[in-house]
Simulated assay, not measured.
Amino acid sequence: MKVLRQWSSFVKRLTHVMAKPMKRDFGRGGMMVHPYRGYGSQREIFVMGRVFRQAALGRAIPRRGMLRDTADVARRIFRRGLSGAAVELTLGGNQLCVSTDRDGYFYVHLPISHPLPIDVSWHVADIRVQAEGQRPVHTQVEIYVPPPEADLVVISDIDDTVMFTGVAEKLKMLYRLFVRKPHRRTAFPGVASLYQALHRGASDKAERPILYVSRGPWAIYEMLEAFFQLNRIPVGPILFLREWGISWRHPWPRRAEAHKRDLIDHMLALFDDLPCILIGDSGQHDPEVYSEVVRDYPGRIKAIYIRRVDQDPAREEAIQNLRNELADTDCQLVLAADSVLIAEHAHAEDYISARGLQAVKRDVYKSYQEAASE
């Protein structure tokens, strides 16, 4: 019975998260816009989102409960991106209008001609969407611009770096996320306190930008948001997922390493006055991709933290060779079995505070204690 209750709870929570984006239209259907958190600098900002055409909710469906969530999930599955919609974004005195592509996505690159306030990091932009035969839609989106105190940018992988995924175990991953106790959810022990320490810096006041990249598609955006909130990991501000764009002519999504490298190049250009830390894992191509970045951007990458996710001697030897190749640079590649080793190096290099280091040690120890007591 306990197992049945747990699985019932899992299904209900997962369904509610998947249905959440559909609640915004109050069941009316029609045109709907879903913007993702934006980011930028005092020179330019970037916002991405998608415009959908979706079905209305039947009058017989209740406003709340599992039946409503199930109906909304069905609406989500069958909704379609709306091409050619006009998307106007306004931030302060800055404004730009773009059109959605054939899949309904829009990309706003807005040069900042009217300065933004420097005493806040999160700005709210207005979005107005119009399309032929549809009622105009108004919404807002949060945009993160690092404050002057920011001295570093952190770019981190998500899959098997922040959270254990096991690509072949997605259902088990979701079960752990929504059912298991916090320390058994998919986050690695100490990850929350480590990323909080990196966000605050050595002064505990830095508010550094932390940018996360995943191999997953934009369709899992809400689930990753829920994961970050449940595990107290800084949202940082943005999740960069992939637009898979699968079709009969292109049956496979774009390679993950190309997606990651393009993101890093973009971030280093955007925050051209800030050094960078890169975080990844040993199971994919992160060490190789990051090492190339170090060579292509001399002096910009201060540290590479690689979480060891397997015990493959050949893989460890390959990473050691990369570390040796970087010996003549000012970037150190650290292969770490847990968050404590990363935090100790970061503290020694003055990237995090002593308080942040102690928080990581405390959380890792507590997590191992709780796991052992089960």
Rank of each mutant, 00 (worst) to 15 (best):
G236W: 02
Q42N: 13
V289M: 11
C97M: 12
H123K: 02
D363S: 07
K12W: 07
L198V: 15
I118V: 15
E325P: 05
E142M: 10
P115S: 11
I301G: 13
F26L: 05
F46M: 03
S247I: 05
Y36L: 11
K170M: 10
I61V: 15
I264R: 05
H259M: 11
V33A: 15
E292T: 07
R208A: 08
H34G: 05
L322Q: 08
Y305H: 08
P217I: 00
P189T: 02
L171Y: 13
R24M: 10
P237Y: 03
L322H: 03
A219W: 13
P21K: 14
L96I: 02
M66F: 13
S121W: 06
L224R: 04
R13G: 11
T329A: 00
Y175P: 07
L241M: 15
R315S: 05
D126A: 13
A60V: 09
H16I: 03
E374N: 06
T90Q: 14
E325Q: 15
P287H: 04
V47G: 09
H259V: 11
V17M: 05
L152C: 07
G104P: 00
R68H: 12
R355T: 09
H285N: 14
L174T: 13
L270V: 03
V360W: 07
L174I: 06
V73K: 06
D159V: 06
E243D: 15
Y290K: 14
S99N: 15
S193V: 04
F240G: 02
G84A: 12
A197N: 09
A219F: 10
P234K: 08
A187G: 07
A187I: 02
E292C: 09
L274K: 13
L110T: 01
G283D: 07
A125E: 07
Y175T: 03
